[in-house]
Amino acid sequence: MGRRRAFDEDEVVRAAVGLFGGRAYDGVSVDDLVTHLGVHRNSLYKTFGSKRGLYLVALRRHLAEDVRPLAEALAAVPDAATALRLVTSADLGLLLLAAVERAPADEEVAAEVAAGLAAVDQAIAGALGVPTALAAALTAAALGLLLRGDPDGARSALTRRLEPLD
């Protein structure tokens, strides 16, 4: 009979979302996971198989708990400016890091990222009644502002420019 798990898997995955979302996959070592998540190395491997296994579970959790609710909210936006505000205020750190760091090298991560972005694009397209390509351009602009940290108030300037389009 095996020993009982000494950690809450849900809490560990939630904490891993924050850790990977703040430091990226390559910025987090297994030692970091053990230290920050409070999980023994053997338990981590037994439960998730590998660092990558935990990363995939964390990415899927992020998509389910952060990106999907964003897409649901975007499906009801009245205009592009509101969509931009929602996307740029969302916690999408792990999605962005996954897109630039892991997706180019990992097909499974690429598929998860693509599905998350497609959900956002489709929600915006449906709400605004615009082609998906135009919605994708709005999503890309919003994500670009998130990546840049909006140092010069570009979000406000872009929002003002989008309002007459609605």
Rank of each mutant, 00 (worst) to 15 (best):
V57F: 02
L63E: 15
L84K: 00
V57H: 09
T82L: 09
L56K: 08
P69Y: 03
T82N: 09
A90F: 02
T82Y: 03
L74D: 00
L44M: 11
D91N: 11
R102L: 12
D66K: 09
D66Y: 09
G18M: 06
A103Q: 05
L86G: 01
Y25H: 11
T88F: 03
D106R: 09
L56C: 02
V39D: 01
V39S: 09
R23D: 15
L54P: 07
A75L: 07
L95A: 07
A90L: 04
D79P: 03
L63G: 00
A75N: 03
D91P: 03
S50D: 12
G38H: 13
V12A: 09
L86I: 01
R41F: 08
L95K: 11
G27V: 03
Y55G: 11
R102H: 09
E101R: 09
D10A: 10
A90N: 05
Y45M: 10
R52K: 15
G21L: 05
T35I: 04
L84I: 10
A103N: 05
R60M: 13
F20C: 05
A24C: 14
V39A: 04
A75C: 07
K51S: 12
R68V: 14
D31T: 14
L54M: 00
V34I: 08
A81W: 00
R14E: 15
L37V: 10
Y25W: 08
L59A: 06
L56M: 12
G18D: 14
A83G: 14
V77A: 03
G53E: 10
V34P: 04
R60N: 15
V87W: 00
A15D: 01
V12M: 05
G49V: 05
D31V: 12
H62A: 10
G22Q: 01
V30G: 08
V13D: 05
G49N: 11
